[in-house]
Write a protein that binds this DNA or RNA. Structure first.
Ligand SMILES: [Zn+2]
Ligand SMILES: [Zn+2]
Ligand SMILES: [Zn+2]
Ligand SMILES: [Zn+2]
Lengths: 144, 144
DNA sequence: ATAGCTCTCTATAGTAGCTATAGAGTCAAG
DNA sequence: CTTGACTCTATAGCTACTATAGAGAGCTAT
């Protein structure tokens, strides 16, 4: 049951270079090598890489994933640390959503300042971007 | 009315190195120099840098800002291009919000799989992350 | 004038998570 | 025995900065 790096990558939905990168970063263990110096992987590698890619699809950093893998690899403790990490990650995502929504509102306000087809110096958007008090003014007069 | 790079940075709320970086990237023009080879800036530079920082606070890329500055610098055209750029940017932000909200839902589902204080191999979160069908299964059974 | 201090100069490397490239070697099939 | 697909290592590039080193400029205090 030994597969090479191309198959491993295909099964995990990532690029060959990415697998080597994870190895260099210590997320994937150094695999056995064939006579021709090709990397050889088994079931445990496949599972581990899929775990990593799953975490990445949830936007976890490699550092967070490293922590998760470390916890997973030593089963003597209970899983409290895992829950803490996940909760922290959810909060980070929620903060990013909030920031992006505020940003969107700001951009929409800006868009409404110009309907287009004006000479450049009369563009409401450009003038809004040149106004260094824009953010301040906006939070005074608007309730979002 | 000539100020040095430190004052310029302070007035625009960014770091000195960032100003030099913008110069290297062609967003800020090369300024005059003093006898001691210090950069000397005037009002136009201040306004331009504040414009750039305002755009950055709206999460525009330097490439987008370069385009905006280019349009702004040649006033012979009308401002249609500005509106297009802003509209595109808003759509990108909205797509990122949508992606993050879906991500959040996924993370919340995962969080509910474990209440903590279990031995590592029984952690519902870890097992969820190991399940490569998680995403597929989730979209089948849930309506978000 | 000389010491100390802050500011500025250039050049270089590092951050995250890959992606892209070059140049060489491995291996199975025709 | 050559073609082609795959793999190897090493290196550079991407975004928008941030950090560092080592040197010079310019002002104040002694
Ligand atoms: Zn306009
Ligand atoms: Zn604004
Ligand atoms: Zn758990
Ligand atoms: Zn999932």
């Amino acid at each position: 049951m030994e597969i090479r790096i191309g198959d491993l990558a295909k099964r995990s939905g990532c690029e060959v270079v990415t697998v080597r990168y994870y190895e260099k970063e210590g997320l994937m263990p150094k695999p056995a090598r064939s006579g021709g110096n090709f990397r050889l992987y088994g079931d445990a590698h496949i599972e581990r890489l899929q775990f990593i890619r799953h975490c990445r699809s949830l936007d976890m950093t490699l550092s967070e994933i490293r922590t998760l893998l470390g916890l997973r690899d030593n089963p003597t403790q209970d899983c409290g640390g895992i829950n803490v990490l996940l909760e922290t990650h959810i909060q980070q995502v929620e903060m990013r959503v909030a920031a992006l929504l505020q940003l969107r509102q700001h951009l929409v306000n800006l868009r409404e300042k110009c309907s287009g087809s004006r000479p450049m110096e009369a563009c409401g958007i450009l003038n809004g971007l040149s106004d260094s008090n824009c953010h301040v003014a906006r939070s005074k007069q608007s309730n979002l």
